[in-house]
Design a binder for these strands. Structure first.
Lengths: 246, 246
DNA sequence: GTCTATATCTCGATAGAC
DNA sequence: GTCTATCGAGATATAGAC
């Protein structure tokens, strides 16, 4: 949450004002949380350029000037929102995809968590997607340092499984790209799916269950070392399902 | 290209000025093509709100006012770009995914075409993705009418194959969502992949080949009715590969 | 048809009262 | 710390000469 990312920011002290408040931190923390939540919604809906400070202020129920009191500029507010998102981004994969697990169990657990995230935090996913579309100017270093190392680690785990004959040989990085693409698209492209499936305002619980089953079938089918791919069908990996963030 | 889409526009006559030019159409057509190409690049890079008419004009090598001569407003120009994209969007699936083909051959052919499109027309894919992120305000009707019918048709073909025992039972619509997600993400999220794979400016030919193989393995493995999934591995469906647009 | 110059408006950011 | 009023940059769009 504080400074997890090597150099997400160009300017010296990103939001030090938020990290070390000079007075009693409580009201400050309340206001900033309020602003960040409003900003996440507005940035997700309109993108960085399309979002206006006025719209964020209105949604937060505050006058415009207060935003500039807590965040020096629009860009800094945007970066703060992005940090919030990225901070929680990598934990799940590192929790599930570890050499000790069975490959099918690990991937199934990860996919279920990611699908649940697409539903519960769709706005966060959309902001990240918009950032990628725009060339990722604000998170370049995060991608090529943190994320790259992260994927390298996952790929090592895949190689380990493959060498042990527990998983069919696959390009691990592209496997991750595909899993991300499928799971996140149920957040990023949900309008499209709603239209195609004839849903009114949002996708339904049933849709996410169907989607999860589809993704599981695709991934587990390709990963399974033989015909008997019984794992990950219905069972919950022992004692971890509840731990993962919703 | 002209008015393929039921009601993409709210205002009465979308760009009738382009459809029926009053003078010799050649210079007009040249300028509009020039503008549309520049607009596609700029809208893709900055989104609708982030793109400026000045930037589009500069890229097209024309003064700003000329854009407003050919297109009444920024929004109308954007819609024209979107129409251009959507017009070529649906043809491939209807070409490949037809009941007469073998399911594995059909899906393999379609996936290869979509992956090639992600490379050759990445900007178009990104504009569409941005439009989805923003709530699809400009293409709502296209999604819920044309695209919905399109997917319904594809789903019928899947049901046909499943009933004939040529394909494993799968939710056809979600299968299409997943195929789109995976193939298009190699255009929309290519910055992310470049960073993770350590590529300089763009993804390389080899990356797209690896990606295509990965997607094929995922989809064909889940679709194949038995263990012997020999189809779609390397061979080209007879006499159609060359027909598909690059 | 093409371009220069400009009107009009919106947004980010700040000054300064409270 | 909080808010009102406002400045100035930059955007869309147009007027009008050529």
């Amino acid at each position: 949450m504080t400074s997890l990312f090597s150099r997400m920011v160009d300017q010296p002290s990103a939001h030090a004002a938020v990290a070390s408040p000079p007075g009693p931190g409580l009201p400050r923390r309340l206001s900033t949380e309020q602003i960040l939540r409003a900003a996440e919604a507005v940035f997700a809906a309109h993108g960085y350029a399309g979002a206006t400070m006025a719209a964020i202020a209105e949604r937060a129920g505050l006058p415009k000037a207060n935003l500039h009191y807590y965040f020096r500029s629009k860009e800094q507010l945007y970066r703060a929102v992005l940090e919030d998102i990225l901070a929680t981004w990598l934990a799940d994969a590192d929790h599930w995809i570890v050499p000790e697990r069975d490959p099918a169990e690990a991937l199934a657990g990860y996919i279920r968590v990611k699908m649940r995230l697409s539903r519960a935090r769709a706005d966060a996913s959309r902001i990240f997607a918009g950032e990628m579309l725009g060339g990722a100017a604000h998170v370049r270093d995060f991608l090529s340092i943190e994320l790259r190392a992260h994927v390298e680690r996952l790929d090592d785990t895949f190689r380990h499984w493959i060498a042990a004959g527990r998983m069919r040989p696959l390009p691990g990085k592209h496997l991750m790209f595909c899993i991300w693409a499928m799971t996140q698209s149920y957040a990023d492209f949900s309008v499209q799916m709603q239209a195609v499936l004839g849903r009114a305002g949002t996708l339904e619980e049933q849709d996410f269950e169907d989607a999860t089953r589809m993704v599981l079938q695709l991934v587990l089918g390709a990963v399974a070392v033989d015909g008997g791919s019984a794992a990950g069908r219905r069972d919950t990996p022992p004692g971890h399902q509840g731990t993962a963030r919703a």
